[in-house]
């Protein structure tokens, strides 16, 4: 299932336009997930988890800064990381719908993290060999961070899945509810396909089985059931989001919107 991405069609340089969109997808995904994790800091189940989640949030914000800066350069309209993060509206955000889902309890946050970490790890590993040098450099840094993130989220998924009856129930429910949002992680659209054909981005159809294998391995160890695939899917990566993104942006962008033009 794909939709046509308007910026690609009719663009003077379709590859460049697709690259811009793709870099925004990655950057926005890191930004929105980092923003969500930021909500936890000071409220986690233990001090160690406050620090662990803060670490991941910091890495994600760092990735977002590199990616959005690069996006601004590709776009060539003088927008920097902050103009892109704070002055775009929801339909111009291209993050995965999964990352904008509310934190819920710690188990839900962990399941969301696992699903994204495993995906980001596959993407960044592949991007290390991208024909786009800048993207390859960013990926080389991000891949190291993401390995650590996945160790953290997989470790907790196993502990919670194979912990108490209550913890098992909670993470299984979270997994069932978040699963529909994973469809777009492994479903290529025209942008994915175009960039894959140029060696810029990995072909999602090759990435999908590796992502599935990683997830299945963790779920097995966590004694969790892989949910059935569902027909309906969200496509945040094409700017079509759930209702949650608007609130997240309203909070994140508040100061820049309330005081236009101020420097911080």
């Amino acid at each position: 299932m794909t939709r046509t991405a308007a910026t690609v069609e009719g663009a003077a340089d379709p590859v460049r336009a697709a690259l811009l969109r793709y870099v925004l997808r990655l950057g926005d995904t890191s930004l929105v997930l980092g923003q969500r994790l930021g909500e936890w800091i000071g409220h986690a189940p233990a001090l160690e988890e406050d620090l662990g989640l803060a670490n991941i949030a910091l890495d994600l914000i760092g990735q977002a800064r590199l990616l959005l800066t690069y996006a601004g350069e590709i776009e060539g309209r003088g927008r920097d990381e902050d103009a892109l993060a704070f002055l775009r509206d929801g339909s111009d955000f291209f993050n995965l719908t999964l990352v904008e889902q509310p934190n819920g309890d710690f188990g839900r946050t962990i399941v969301r993290q696992l699903l994204v970490d495993a995906w980001q790890l596959e993407v960044y590993e592949a991007l290390c060999a991208s024909t786009d040098r800048r993207l390859a450099e960013i990926a080389a840094k991000a891949v190291k961070e993401t390995r650590y993130h996945l160790r953290y989220s997989a470790g907790w998924t196993v502990r919670l899945g194979d912990g108490t009856e209550e913890s098992h129930r909670r993470v299984q429910t979270a997994l069932d509810e978040l699963w529909p949002f994973t469809v777009e992680l492994v479903t290529a659209d025209e942008i994915d396909a175009l960039l894959a054909s140029r060696g810029i981005a990995p072909p999602l159809e090759e990435l999908a089985p590796r992502w599935n294998a990683r997830i299945d391995e963790v779920l097995r160890e966590a004694t969790l059931q892989r949910p059935a695939d569902v027909p309906y899917a969200w496509f945040g990566k094409q700017g079509v989001h759930s209702e949650h993104l608007g609130y997240l942006l309203a909070e994140m962008q508040f100061l820049q919107r309330a005081y236009p033009g101020a420097r911080w």
């Binding site: 930004l31 923003q35 930021g38 909500e39 800091i41 000071g42 001090l47 406050d50 620090l51 803060a54 670490n55 949030a57 910091l58 914000i61 760092g62 977002a64 800064r65 959005l68 990381e81 902050d82 993060a85 704070f86 909070e251 994140m252 508040f254 100061l255 820049q256 101020a262 911080w264």
Partner: peptide, 21 residues
């Protein structure tokens, strides 16, 4: 943290709160 006005300020604030923990 969720309302820091720039990404740099957000990162610095997260790191600070993390240091406190």
């Amino acid at each position: 943290i969720t309302r820091a006005p720039t990404l740099r300020r957000k990162a610095v604030l997260i790191a600070k709160v993390q240091d406190e923990g």
